[in-house]
Structure formats: structure tokens, C-alpha cells
């Protein structure tokens, strides 16, 4: 087995009000797979996800112990360029959040900040990322219109395209289908199969069913602790821990 792309080692996180969000979490995420973090609310899934690109820095007063390694390097080391990290590990949020401005401007925003100047290159990346997010055909004739004019599902695919444009290594999906109808959800889920050929995807799913549909590997979290993790094919069929089994079969949560 190759080295993991993301390695979490004995991670603890405590919020300012002293609630323990994560307790001694360790896990490995390998390249080109969909890794799902599932569990009931307040299990620490989103907290863990936001640590991977250090969006957790925005919350004041958190205390952290343990390491998160990206390709073997500690992402919390002082010399790490956080902007560069967030381009490598990109995030798509639960609520589709276009930025005010055109579709084109949304996708090129991060690229321009990263120093991509050539209009030709920008245009190429816009088309490629929109194609990858399965949105190109719907918006190719109106790239200059407002991103707010899109439907909910289109907005979310725009947000995915916006992340893809940065050509990240990892895409973090925080319950990306929470506000979407079943058809839009299916579109987003389908796109994951193609995306994982190029990227590594870490996702907090909408439901256990979604987790089972999309995951290659999965980790079950409960009250900030990692209960078990492993290949989805085993996790969702023969969970080893009683608590995982109870959750999957709908006995709580």
C-alpha cells in the first residue's frame, strides 16, 4: 500500500467553551478514492473536514493536539502557506454559496488570486472545470450572467467547479447535497465517480444511504471519537463495532 495522502495522527480538538470536538482521532486517506466521514450530528465530522484545509483557523480559541499530514508534511507547521494549502485542499460547503458576480467570475476568482493572468488560460480552466462538474452544457452560453440566477443544484455544481478550477489534490465536500432535490443529488453523486480518477475526495454525506452509495472507504465518528474505519464494502455490510452497526441499521442518530 502506498503512503496515505492525508494522515491524521492522534488528533484532539477542543473549542473555546471546552467542548471536546475530536478525541484521539487517527486515520489514513489514500489517493483517488472517496473517503466518507459519517456519524450522527455533533460527532465531529465537519470539524475534522475543516481541519484538513485549516478553515478551522477561523474559529477563535480552539486547542489542538496531534498531527494532520498532507503527503507526509504537517499542515500546521509554521512555514506552511495557508493560501497554498487551501488551493491544494479545496472545500465545497453544505449550502451552495456562489460569490456575487458572474459564473465566470466565480470560477476565476481563486485562479486570479493564485496568479493566473492569461485570459486564455482562465477561459480554458473555466471550461474544463465546468465540464468536470457536469455544468458546462447548461451554462456555456451565459458565463457572464449572475451566479445567483442558477438553480440550487446548478449552484452547487458551480461551487464544485470553482474548487476544481484550482486543480486541487483533495476536495472536501461538507454535506454537498443537503439542500438539493433527489435528481440534483444524483447528478452530484455521479460526478464523484469521475472526479475521483483525478482527485481525492473526502466527504461528509447527507445520510448513511448516501455514504454507502458513494464511499470507497469510510470512517464512523461518534462524539468526537473514531469508532471504526475501513473499506466501505465491509463497513456497511459487516461493521465490527456494535455502535457502528446500531447507527447504520438506524437504531439511533
Amino acid at each position: 500500500m502506498t503512503d496515505p495522502l492525508i494522515a491524521v495522527r492522534n488528533l484532539y480538538l477542543t473549542y473555546a467553551d471546552e467542548t471536546e470536538a475530536l478525541r484521539n482521532v487517527s486515520l489514513d486517506i489514500h489517493r483517488n478514492q472517496v473517503f466518507v466521514l459519517f456519524g450522527p450530528s455533533r460527532a465531529g465530522k465537519s470539524t475534522l473536514l475543516r481541519l484538513f484545509n485549516r478553515l478551522s483557523d477561523l474559529i477563535e480559541g480552539t486547542q489542538r493536539r496531534g498531527e494532520v499530514l498532507l503527503a507526509g508534511r504537517d499542515i500546521f507547521a509554521p512555514e506552511v502557506n495557508v493560501s497554498a494549502l487551501r488551493r491544494r485542499v479545496s472545500m465545497v460547503f453544505a449550502v451552495p454559496t456562489p460569490l456575487p458576480g458572474s459564473i465566470y467570475a466565480n470560477i476565476t476568482y481563486g485562479l486570479k488570486l493564485a496568479g493566473v493572468r492569461s485570459e486564455e488560460e482562465l477561459g480554458r480552466r473555466v471550461e474544463r472545470s465546468l465540464r468536470q462538474a457536469a455544468l458546462w452544457d447548461e451554462v456555456k452560453d451565459r458565463l457572464e450572467s449572475s451566479a445567483f440566477a442558477l438553480s440550487g443544484g446548478q449552484k452547487q455544481r458551480l461551487c464544485i467547479a470553482r474548487s476544481l478550477a484550482l486543480e486541487p489534490e483533495v476536495i472536501l465536500l461538507d454535506n454537498p447535497t443537503s439542500g438539493l432535490d433527489p435528481i440534483s443529488t444524483a447528478t452530484v453523486e455521479e460526478s464523484l465517480y469521475e472526479l475521483k480518477a483525478r482527485y481525492t475526495i473526502v466527504m461528509v454525506p447527507h445520510s448513511v444511504q448516501q455514504a454507502a452509495r458513494v464511499a470507497d472507504n469510510a470512517a464512523f465518528l461518534l462524539d468526537g471519537e473514531l469508532i471504526e474505519s475501513g473499506p466501505a464494502a465491509r463497513m456497511f455490510v459487516h461493521p465490527q463495532d456494535k455502535r457502528t452497526e446500531d447507527y447504520i441499521t438506524g437504531r439511533f442518530g
Binding site: 449550502v95 488570486l113 484550482l166
Partner: peptide, 25 residues
Amino acid sequence: QQFRTVSLSLGASRWQTIRYQVLPH
């Protein structure tokens, strides 16, 4: 607030976020 979070998550610095996503609005 989410405009700031999104901007930061796309690799913008804090000042770039203020300059491009906060002040114009």
C-alpha cells in the same frame, strides 16, 4: 459571513477577502 469563508477557502488571504468580497458589497 459565508462570502468570507468561501473566499478564504479558495486561497484568498484575509486582506484579499476584505478587498474583493467585503468592501465592494
